[in-house]
Design a protein around this nucleic acid. Structure first.
Length: 302
DNA sequence: AGCCAGGCCTGTG
DNA sequence: CACAGGCATGGC
């Protein structure tokens, strides 16, 4: 671990000095580009110093270095909470080894080497994916960033970044204020979820102790949360790697590759996937999703 | 300009 | 059970 002062160029004129220390995380096969760019989260960004994001209300920086990752922590690091978030202890080789050796999936693994699933904060993940429905990822990012800018709290270590607003804050903002963040009809759903948390009807901590099916039921009881969004939350925030979100991209790919002669329902695609891709199906799903979105339209005729 | 986006809900047949 | 339409907004 190295301690020191780091000079950051501020948005405007003066440079500010912020106390930062770095920790090296020994890990092989960790691609920040794929992990932070694959659409499992919506707030990490890249600037001249590398990747920057907010974990637990603190600015956190990430860079790939030989042998692993360098984590820049601002005021209050050292507890190792970022290890859980980054899921760097997962043996990716072992995960990939459980995949069926289908051509597309193997191609996806090659194309997205080092893609890992994070362990996100449940509220941020739930809120983010409530805002995701019928939106392109670039737009989801815009909405979530606007929500943070307007209603988040200051972030330790950063002059400009704001944290993701809490359920209490979202309730206080109200539907009109949320709609002003360009989220359209999703505002009511986000507000409803925030109220459920504040009222204690939805215990996000408690979900972690429930079996996947029961946890999914709780999430799907929320307005605006169907199986797809629930599965995203189960996979990205609760580490349920058997959850397999089927969105339009994954559905299209599954249909073309595995059912070339017909068009199965979503239910059938989910049923097929849960059996076909094994205990780490959620990982496989993310490889397929990112591959489908980034490998050009050549995969599909249309 | 028009289609579609990491969906979901509420009708109808 | 399947399917259509509506919902806000904006990228491409």
């Amino acid at each position: 671990m190295a301690r020191g002062m780091c000079v950051i160029r501020g948005l405007g004129f003066e440079e500010v000095e912020i106390n930062v220390h770095h920790e090296q995380l020994e890990v092989s096969d960790y691609s920040l580009e794929h992990t932070l760019g694959c659409g499992q989260e919506f707030l990490w960004g890249k600037d001249e110093l590398g990747w920057r994001g907010v974990i637990k209300g603190r600015l956190t920086r990430l860079r790939e270095v030989p042998g692993g990752l360098e984590v820049g922590l601002y005021d209050g690091g050292g507890a190792g909470w970022f290890r859980d978030y980054l899921q760097a202890d997962v043996d990716l080789q072992r995960v990939v080894a459980t995949f069926p050796r289908d051509r597309v999936l193997m191609d996806a693994v090659s194309a997205c080497r080092g893609l890992r699933l994070l362990r996100q904060d449940p509220w941020e993940c739930l809120a983010g994916f409530i805002l995701s429905s019928t939106k392109q990822i670039v737009q989801i990012r815009q909405i979530v960033q606007l929500l943070c800018e307007r209603h988040g709290r200051p972030v330790t270590g950063s002059e400009s970044l704001r944290s993701f607003p809490s359920p209490e804050t979202v309730c206080a903002v109200g539907e009109a204020g949320l709609r002003a963040c360009r989220m359209g009809f999703r505002a009511a759903s986000l507000l409803g979820a925030a109220r459920a948390v504040v009222d204690g009807k939805l215990d996000l901590e408690g979900l972690g102790t429930l079996p996947t099916g029961a946890a999914r039921e709780q999430l799907m009881a929320l307005r605006g949360v169907g199986q797809k969004i629930a599965d995203c939350v189960l996979l990205f925030a609760y580490g349920r790697q058997d959850a397999f979100p089927v969105d339009v991209w994954v559905a299209r790919m599954l249909q073309v590759v595995y059912f070339p002669r017909r068009k199965p329902s979503l239910a059938e695609l989910r049923e097929f996937s849960s059996g076909h891709f094994g205990p780490y199906g959620g990982y496989a799903q993310q490889y397929l999703f990112h591959y489908a979105r980034t490998s050009g339209a050549g995969l599909f005729e249309k």
